[in-house]
Design a protein around this nucleic acid. Structure first.
Lengths: 357, 357
DNA sequence: CTGAAAGCGCTTACAG
DNA sequence: CTGAAAGCGCTTACAG
């Protein structure tokens, strides 16, 4: 395997100069750089990441932590993040929590990320006190996406879940619905999202604003999944007089509700209207009305905010002063101002006025 | 930051012993190990991966390369692989090709994986000659999943695509269909899968076995996506007399076909039956008949086959002899025998006998 | 703009 | 079973 010495010898310079030239540092003459690049090319030289990391202290790697990569929102976020990270010269270390407490602790509480990544992105993973302490001890830059809990010093990208839920509910109200059910997330769900809490808050607020009383029999909790939506809708129907409309906290739950309604012999939207939040890839296929949220954009923006202070593999990165450690870091955006991306009502075939009977 | 020296000092042993004790090597007395572990615990010591990799030559990392993480099959494979890798003490470096040729070359042809991972998993990514040469030069152990092309020396996990397609086609034949269309992948698709080639072969073979002539007007190509399925079905309908049944090469394409049929005012299955291959998460919701393939199982099995000769973070791993390099590696399963996992016909509401007219 | 030398923090023969 | 020492292959002050 060719090492940096081989390149140095062939180019007739020191290893220090090879190192600088290859990384594009500005303190190398054009002629020298050219010779070094040619030598490296000729020898098919590739730097050893381990050696580079040990000597330089940077890992060139970012950890991305998601609850479940198989869900629409998370795979979409990861796809956008992956592209940007690799373009910026960073590797992506993937952690899929999968709702397993053991995994959660392995990732968040042990030093598993320690000295292994330069930064981390936490997607929709609320933190417990012990998690916070562990992350603080790691002293890594990070960013959260769609998070229920902010981390001091980390930027945060999200949507306004309350507003999205209000928009969905208002759409149903505008169509003339008054018996509007809500399928929300289960607070004990192993995946532990919290977005559904805000969404339920928005649902209730919008009903209140319309002068409608809260009806607990129309407000069910279930897991954040197709199955969860199915179960919740079935339960709603079992409770007696069915609602004329269902607002599910996410499209996957709404899809489960569609099946449950079909199984019960009810037509959508003639008998019951259904709306979700997300604009899942398949919502169009299903004709599901929804409040669209920009998943890829949230991931991309978060990745940008994360790498911005770190710098990529360009001149600026190496010219920049090392990131100051500790609490007062002016380069890091303040945690106080989460970036809120807009949502948008998408009306399809699953919502219509209630039957006039 | 505590280093191995600190632990050695506290435990009253050499750094070599700390290193051995922490990794569970058998050549450490129980008493010494206990003392070292206690010291490490007390100091909250975590080994530096960069240093360990540089000195030891192992990276403890596996690269997983998928065409598009947002697609059902790939996210399902990755989820299963991620869990197994992390349980085995390996990190997962994710590469999402995304159909971009530039990305493909960056991952496959440059030394981007060089000295960065111990092994790689290639999912549904057929190789061009230049790719093969680059991978051979890397001399890394690897495994392919659902691959169109085998890599010498790498195990391979897949389904029998021909048989799956025959089963889907036979189901339609058994229902009495004779005008059976097929929506296949586009050979020029940027994602460059090749499974659809085998699936079309199976479709044609089954028709032939039933004594039906090949009808080119019923055989369309499109991209491997919901949109692709939609476009292909629309094209089929535009060609004149519609088929009584459509077999799509994957469920996502079948879903697109469902939409196109609905848009054209045709009912499924009364007017047209539809079947796919996969058993996508949402196929149940859509009532889509399909030939189910075990995605998670393929990923898990591939991960096992990959790590088996590498060894995990257990005693056996370190006791094992170093992997011999070069062509004759008895520890690696022969490429000649791909592991074929079974598929299963799942009949739902989207398939029925043709109208009797 | 360039080089000599120290150092990053481990693991691994080798010797005992 | 354990330790002293070399070495993994880079980057980074420091000096010029």
């Amino acid at each position: 395997m060719t090492r940096i010495d081989d390149v140095a010898r062939l180019a007739g310079v020191s290893t220090a100069t090879v190192s600088r030239a290859l990384r594009g540092l500005p303190t190398v003459s054009a002629a020298t750089r050219r010779r070094v690049l040619a030598a490296a090319e000729q020898l098919q030289y590739a730097v050893s990441p381990s050696a580079s990391r040990l000597a330089g202290g940077r890992t060139g790697t970012v950890a991305v932590i998601v609850p479940r990569i198989t869900r629409w929102f998370f795979s979409t976020v990861v796809e956008a993040v992956e592209e940007f990270l690799h373009q910026s010269g960073y590797d992506l270390l993937l952690h899929n929590l999968g709702g397993r407490e053991q995994t959660r602790q392995r990732v968040l509480r042990t030093a598993n990320l320690h000295k292994r990544v330069d930064a981390m992105m936490l997607v929709a993973t609320p933190l417990r006190p012990a998690d916070r302490a562990a992350l603080a001890a790691l002293d890594l830059p990070g960013v959260t996406v769609s998070s229920g809990t902010d981390v001091p010093g980390w930027p945060c990208v999200r949507i306004d879940d309350v507003a999205a839920a209000r928009a969905a509910t208002r759409h149903l109200l505008d169509l003339g619905h008054r018996r509007i059910a809500h399928i929300s997330g289960d607070p004990d769900d192993e995946l532990a999202f919290t977005a559904h809490l805000d969404r339920r808050r928005g649902y209730r607020a919008e009903l209140r604003a319309a002068g409608l009383p809260a009806d607990p029999s129309l407000d069910v909790e279930s897991t954040f999944s197709i199955d969860g939506g199915h179960r919740a809708a079935a339960e709603l129907l079992a409770r007696g007089e069915p609602p004329t409309a269902i607002f599910a906290a996410c499209d996957e739950m709404a899809m489960g509700a569609l099946t449950a309604l079909r199984d019960a012999g009810l037509r959508v939207p003639q008998d019951v209207s259904v709306i979700g939040i997300d604009d899942h890839d398949l919502s169009g296929v299903l004709g599901l009305s929804t409040v669209a949220q920009p998943a890829a954009e949230q991931g991309l923006l978060a990745a940008r905010l994360l790498l911005d202070p770190l710098g990529g593999r360009d001149l600026a990165a190496y010219a920049a002063a090392p990131r100051p450690r500790g609490d007062a870091d002016p380069a890091r955006p303040a945690a106080a101002a989460p970036v809120i991306l807009p949502t948008r009502l998408v009306v399809r075939e699953s919502t219509a006025p209630p039957r006039a009977d």
